[in-house]
Nucleic acid binder design. Structure first.
Lengths: 254, 254
DNA sequence: ACATGCGTTCGAAGGGTTCGAACACATTTA
DNA sequence: TAAATGTGTTCGAACCCTTCGAACGCATGT
């Protein structure tokens, strides 16, 4: 939003837009894609053939779908993060221990990516899945990460992505966000009370490196009537603080 | 190999080639990428900026690396396969039960993709990871899948991808492959004896739909001195046959 | 048999990509 | 200290490649 990219490679962007559409809409053919993207049928056709040749799209009943070649890239990208391998066992442990849904999230380009999630016995279904990219201010883990950034970095992220709302509880005001971040810094953990999904609460704690720079965060989420009061702000929060601490130590020696 | 693609979108191909290089070589900058790919520095620079804007590449120490946006796409692609969700719990169960490494693999465009793997207590480290794309004839699971294809489909795949060797035990001859596939059909399971990694053995069983078309395969792999004799060809094979059978039934009712 | 929808092919026209040279900048070398 | 080498970056021109729309085959359904 600040600096418009000077000359992006338009053709590549088109290919990516097609992939994105295939992801959002499921199997589609050239005709529908063309009309939805405002392109010529033949253009989309050619892109699809190229994507197919590369393994990024595959023919499926009544159109094309996203290919597994992207899983190869995606898993590789995840494995690049040492935070993932260190946090993963802790996430599994926390899910087992609490029975809720536990996530580790990392920041990239000002967005929060769900690296890995484990479902406890009583965990509920949420819109997030592995790989999901969310706004940081809409996540407990995301706000925990933001709280460890310098103010100017937070401002840059808000400038770039804005503060869109998911529910009426979502923080949409910059001043309010900074107040919240200060609260998080003071008490050590972030809370999410129906800020992304109604009736869904969460706690999140940031994991930082030696310099205090955030490498990610761990969160526990569940139904609001179970994640409330002292269980939320004392029991689960302390559990997370301990886990995050362990992960930080393990990160320093790997 | 049979029909050369007529007019692939060259520009998009270039972007993908850059991503592929970043995956193979780790963090690289425009200069090195340009020389390795035979492109102008400025061209690569522009592509990288575009990839960065899209979230497919991110600046990292001394260059760019593959971005987590690809994880978003990749996990989505995996979730599209109902075989994944049905087979996953069985894979976990088998890993627990056998202590070895268990995989579920599916075919796409004539290649085998490792959808999901679970490590048992005694499992060894192998070159495969989730998302890995392999030649079907080099995998126990891959050969099991091939055995369920009609001959002409197998021939088309061999034509397209060839039969490259990984070890001296890899099947590199078409006739030999067809003999092996017949053996697999007769006894119900596929074996891999150091055909992809020295000292590594595996058993694989195909999972088909109602029409007998292969939707994937499950395999167990481990060190050759542990996966041999009756344990390999009777105990583990029967375990897999039972698991595959269960998965097939569950697939029919989902 | 006709109509409508789809995927596919083709050639022309125009725009976008590519290239190399030149720039700024940091780090290393003399 | 200054030259030298290596980066990443910007710019404009030339050409190639993408884009478009129309037309074609081919299915399905009317």
């Amino acid at each position: 939003m600040t600096d418009e990219q000077r000359r992006p490679v338009k053709t590549a962007t088109t290919s990516f837009a097609i992939l994105e559409r295939l992801k959002e809409r499921g199997p589609l053919g050239p005709t529908k894609l063309a009309s939805e993207l405002g392109l010529a049928k033949s253009t989309v056709h050619r892109h699809l053939k190229t994507l197919e040749q590369e393994g990024f799209a595959v023919p499926d009943e009544g159109g094309y779908r996203v290919g597994l070649r992207l899983l190869d890239f995606g898993i590789y990208a995840r494995n690049q993060h040492q935070f993932y391998e260190v946090a993963k066992p802790k996430v599994d442990e926390l899910a087992e221990e609490t029975g809720e849904k536990v996530w580790c999230v990392t920041e990239e380009q000002g967005r929060g990516f769900h690296l890995y999630g484990a479902a406890g016995k009583h965990s509920v279904r949420t819109p997030a899945r592995e790989g999901t990219c969310s706004y940081l201010h809409q996540l407990a883990a995301g706000k925990a990460i933001l709280s460890a950034f310098p103010d100017e970095r937070v401002e840059a992220i808000v400038d770039q992505h804005g503060l869109p709302a998911k529910t009426s509880h979502t923080i949409t005001d910059t001043d309010e966000l900074f107040e919240e971040l200060q609260t998080i810094r003071d008490r050590g953990f972030a809370l999410n009370r129906e800020e992304i999904v109604p009736k869904l609460h969460a706690v999140g704690v940031v994991v930082t490196d030696q310099d205090g720079y955030p490498v990610g965060a761990i969160s526990i989420s569940g139904p609001s009537n179970r994640l409330k009061g002292e269980r939320l702000t004392v029991d689960l929060a302390n559990l997370l603080l301990g886990a995050a601490n362990e992960v930080e130590i393990n990160l320093n020696f790997s």
